[in-house]
Simulated assay, not measured.
Amino acid sequence: MAVLASLNSPLLPAASSSPDSSAKNPLFTRRRAMVAGSSVVVGSLLNLCNPNSKPLSSQSAIAQQQREEKDELDQEEDRIVHLFQEASPSVVFIKGLELAKIPKTSSEEVMLTEDENAKVEGTGSGFIWDKFGHIVTNYHVVAKLATDKSGLQRCKVFLSDARGTSFYKEGKIVGFDPAYDLAVLKVDVEGYKLRPVVLGTSHNLRVGQSCFAIGNPYGYENTLTTGVVSGLGREIPSPNGRAIRGAIQTDAAINAGNSGGPLIDSYGHVIGVNTATFTRKGTGISSGVNFAIPIDTVLRTVPTLIVYGTPYRDRF
């Protein structure tokens, strides 16, 4: 306040018209210095009046940081979207059907379109193994078809080709191994070009790394869930009562209908086959503790099933 009062002091003379008057009159120079200094003081006082205000440099830094964080978030979302778009065409939807009676015609298309005469036995997921139409899934997804002696069981596989064209075909059992809860189907893909999955490895997985499950929970096709690898080296029961060792534990949601679908890593490589989830007793609600068969086990089993079919011990 003392500085502000000095601006109106009568001791200061009027401004001279001489060009060098400021140099000759030190009071004039002092007056301009005091005016400049008072402006700084006024700005400081105004800043003090608003305790929430921040210096412009600080505000700019915060705004820049927020923009960078938003850009990083957008990049992460774009990466996951791209990951799903690349992997989902390789995932199939499997529907198990039980016909009311054996059709008189042997036409595959007629049998599969007569859904009004068929009862849906269950649904599941799978993924395209190769361009020849081999589909990998869980044994428990197609167990009724694998053990059918009545001739009434059918398997309807919904899939897409590399151009995004959706179609369905009847799936035929090639081989299965209940000890690892794995099965291989074959569909006729003449005239279609398939996009097989990209296979990864599971021996070098680490707890905490991101993973993604793609499948058809409760019949909702092409569903993506995200999570992390929660544990490694777990044991889960197989359909024949034995233990499947080395299973991957994840918190990526897996529900009924996800079985047989792929668990993929951040690069889109398949690291496991989604298989099981613990549920709260009597509720049917997932506990968030989910398991997948490691892809290294799948790589040892599936080629044998394709070439040799079902192991002799599991045929009867």
Rank of each mutant, 00 (worst) to 15 (best):
L159N: 03
S160G: 01
S160T: 13
S160C: 05
S160D: 02
D161Y: 05
T165W: 06
Y168W: 09
K169I: 00
G171F: 02
G171E: 01
K172M: 11
I173E: 01
I173T: 03
G175Y: 09
F176N: 00
D177V: 11
D177R: 12
D177Y: 12
D177H: 11
P178T: 11
A179L: 04
A179Y: 06
D181L: 08
L182S: 00
A183W: 03
A183Q: 03
V184P: 00
V184L: 07
L185P: 01
K186D: 02
K186I: 02
V187M: 00
V187Y: 00
V187D: 00
V187W: 00
D188E: 13
D188W: 02
D188V: 03
V189Q: 01
E190H: 06
G191R: 09
Y192E: 07
Y192T: 04
Y192Q: 11
K193W: 11
L194D: 03
R195H: 13
R195A: 14
P196F: 01
V197M: 10
V197I: 15
V197H: 08
V198D: 14
L199M: 14
G200M: 05
T201W: 08
T201C: 06
S202P: 01
H203K: 15
H203N: 15
H203G: 07
H203P: 03
L205N: 10
V207T: 15
S210H: 14
S210A: 14
S210R: 15
S210L: 15
C211F: 12
A213Y: 09
I214L: 15
N216C: 06
N216L: 09
N216D: 05
P217G: 07
P217R: 03
Y218L: 13
G219A: 09
Y220L: 15
E221N: 10
E221D: 03
N222F: 14
T223Q: 12
L224C: 07
T226E: 14
T226I: 12
G227Q: 07
V228C: 04
G231I: 10
L232F: 07
L232M: 04
R234W: 11
E235D: 13
E235T: 14
P237V: 05
P237G: 08
S238P: 09
N240G: 08
G241D: 07
A243I: 12
I244M: 02
R245S: 12
R245D: 04
G246S: 06
A247I: 04
A247F: 12
I248V: 13
Q249T: 08
Q249A: 06
Q249I: 09
Q249C: 08
T250D: 04
D251K: 04
A252L: 09
I254R: 06
I254S: 02
I254F: 10
G257F: 12
G257D: 05
N258K: 07
N258S: 15
